[in-house]
Simulated assay, not measured.
Amino acid sequence: MPLNFWLAVLLLIILALVFVIYPMLFARRSRPVVQYREQNLATYRARLAELERERDEGALDESGFESLKDELEMRLLRDVESEDTAGEASSGGRAGIVVTTLALVLALPVGAFLLYDSLGASDEVAQFRERQQMMQDGMDASDVDAMVQRLQTRLEADPDNPQGWAMLGRSYMQLERFREAAEAYGELARAIERAGDGNPASALGLRAQALFMANRGEVTAEVDNAISRAREGNPDEVNSLGLLGVEAFRNGDYREALDYWERILEIAPDHPQAESIRRGVAAAYSELGEPVPDDLLEEGGGQSGESGS
């Protein structure tokens, strides 16, 4: 009789655990992380297209466009970080439930203590993450650096994400971590190649630029290799043309430097560095002993004229 009683109690406890814990283990999440990520990316693309349209229509200058674009990318970076924090909390909670369930089945008294400890630890972790989220609005450089590092880790696990690699590259450039930026842009080029629906030339040009900065403004063999690969995909890739112009000017090949820089002004007159390029063109004409073209002076305004005098 006593044995039957305890067997009955044990059976009832197991049934209760099944009915209580089963929905927690196998219930579907109402809003998957993947869906949330896709919505964030769609919102980002829509807003970026709107900014580009305003720039093309003249409602927004290039400086304002770049500033708003950087702000938009940082906002997306924060949203992705928030989404992954929520996903990690959910996955960690489910794993804890599985472990606790097994412990309860094997040894109910011990399992009760384990369950208590596990739930208490989960509450502490949740509170800690909430404090992190509240501090995001006042992030300093170390916070941004840590966030970027977590994005790097996430992309290593999910490399087929061109938008993520582009964001990572720009973030590293802003942090002046040029070697890491070059690696990110290299991964961006590979992601584009794997997708098969784009030209990696711009990514390779950005990689060349980052390597140029990492090597203290020297066109090394790896910089030259990145430039060559970029121009194989697009002979007019502007970052590569700019670097080639700099190297030609340093070597005293002023006519060649003019060819590169004037090509940039021809195909990308609204380039963010157009004013600096015009000053370089004016300096090259000055070295050649030739007058600066009037159209260059008119487009560049007073600063270009001063550079050429």
Rank of each mutant, 00 (worst) to 15 (best):
Q136S: 15
F113R: 02
Q127G: 13
L244E: 15
V238P: 14
D160A: 09
Y36K: 07
R150V: 00
L51N: 07
L265K: 06
A46L: 09
I97M: 05
L211A: 09
V110P: 03
A182V: 04
R131G: 08
A166L: 13
A210I: 10
L265E: 10
G87H: 00
R31T: 10
S67G: 06
V80L: 07
E57P: 03
V33E: 00
A203C: 09
R207T: 13
F5A: 05
F19S: 13
F128K: 10
N4F: 05
Y285K: 00
I277M: 02
L188F: 04
L211Y: 11
D123K: 03
G245W: 09
Q209D: 09
D236N: 07
Q163Y: 11
R55T: 12
L77R: 07
G93W: 13
R154S: 00
A166S: 10
L77N: 14
F178Y: 01
E237K: 11
S142A: 14
V292C: 10
S63C: 07
R150M: 03
G92Y: 03
P162S: 08
D56F: 02
V238W: 06
G120K: 12
P200D: 09
E247G: 12
A89I: 02
N199Q: 15
E222L: 03
D140V: 00
R75K: 15
Q39N: 13
P291V: 05
